[in-house]
Amino acid sequence: MQDTVEAVYATVAGNVAARADRLWDVSTALHRDPETSWAEHRAAALLSGELERAGFRVDHGVAGLPTAFVARTGDGDGPRVALLMEYDALPGLGHACGHNLIAGAGLGAALALRDTFGEVPGTLLAVGTPAEEGGGGKVNEVAAGVFDGVDAALMFHPGVYDWSWAPLTASAQLRVGFHGRAAHPTGNPTEGIDALAALIQFFNTIAVLSRRLPSGSHVQGIVSQGGKATNIVPDYAEGLFGLRGGTTGALHRLVAELRSCAEGVALATGSRAEVTQVGEVYEHFRPNDVLAGRFTDHIARSGIELTQPTAGVYLGSSDIGNVSTRVPALHPFVAIMGADGSDHTPDFARAAAGERARRVMLASAEALACTAADVLMDSAIREEAWSRLREREKAETA
């Protein structure tokens, strides 16, 4: 069996190498032509076209999303593995999060596995997941059943650290509005109820709340509407607030606290509070050390050493969290620039088209394909991955 497994790994490596130039062409094409969330029409067409030409059966517009797709291959029986591709860019910054590399690696892994097995044992899905940066395509795909029956959902993310899994928080956005009563500030000031003053008091209340939030939780807000003129007491004001929690449960508790704060401020100021959720909730990422361990071992053959994340450090949020709380999932970070840099910057966008990025993308494609092969070929790995997921779920809800 070991000889067979090693032969598969070697074949995967050869197949990734054989497609290296084309994979890099696809990645750099995405980089040159960035499309933002929900508008990734050319990216989705490019990636799904590559898969279709390689013999994958492609469903377009899955989960009611025009730029989402699922490509599948295999005999349809037994295990199911999903390779995830992100391809949306940031407004004004292009691929400053490196999603062009995520797409290239996922595509390369899928094509290499089909080249290796011919008829994949089980089912291999290559899932196009739009709007990670704003909207959450994976949330819709989870709800639509795209990941039902999947034994492992695999992707990688370029970054500034070499970490075997991603410490990603849960996140949500709330719009908090206060309704007051307009008045002239000198003509009839006592008739007015200042909605902006209520909103400012809400910001002050949140500042006090923030001092006692647990690690991984925070609130960041902006004033999105504050009145129409300086000689009118504002009858409406609102703020937009981004909330994060180290776990999804912590996020829900924070949301409840903000609602209570808004009601308290409204009571104190004579206004009326209105709290609404904006967009989808991103759940926290639930790591799976079985899958992370396999990927770490495989990418080490390319000279990349992954470690555990630094304790207490969080790196934002992603809709991969909503997948990871339902099926075993993989989301390592692999560095394309030094730890003194950051994603969501022009420097990172430039790095995502550089020589180091090419090496990382190809190494990650090979490691993703080998990890997927492990899951497809070895029932013990599947069972252990599911067991670890259930253990983490139990620990988080205890």
Rank of each mutant, 00 (worst) to 15 (best):
S342W: 14
A266E: 11
G94W: 01
D194N: 15
F56P: 04
Q277I: 13
L330T: 03
A144T: 09
G242F: 09
P214L: 06
G94Y: 02
A262V: 03
H41R: 13
T190Q: 14
F202K: 04
G118Y: 04
G118W: 02
G177S: 08
S217Y: 08
L154K: 03
V208W: 04
Q220K: 12
L107D: 09
A357M: 09
G316S: 06
Y314H: 12
V327N: 02
A339V: 12
I222C: 00
A335K: 13
H252I: 07
A197T: 11
Y161I: 11
A353Q: 12
A182L: 10
S37M: 14
G221M: 03
H184F: 07
F333W: 12
T116H: 01
A166G: 11
I299R: 01
A198R: 00
V255R: 12
R80C: 13
A82C: 12
A300N: 07
T169M: 13
S364G: 09
R272M: 01
Y161M: 12
M337C: 15
T310Q: 13
L243H: 04
E283Y: 06
W165G: 08
D33C: 06
D59A: 14
A311H: 14
R356Y: 06
R272F: 03
S48P: 06
S210G: 10
W38M: 10
M155N: 04
S317H: 05
V327E: 03
S210E: 09
G61K: 05
R350E: 13
V62G: 01
S48K: 06
L93V: 08
A311V: 15
R356F: 02
H298K: 00
G61V: 10
V281T: 15
S260L: 11
T248F: 06
Y161R: 15
Q201D: 12
A63N: 07
R259V: 08
V58F: 11
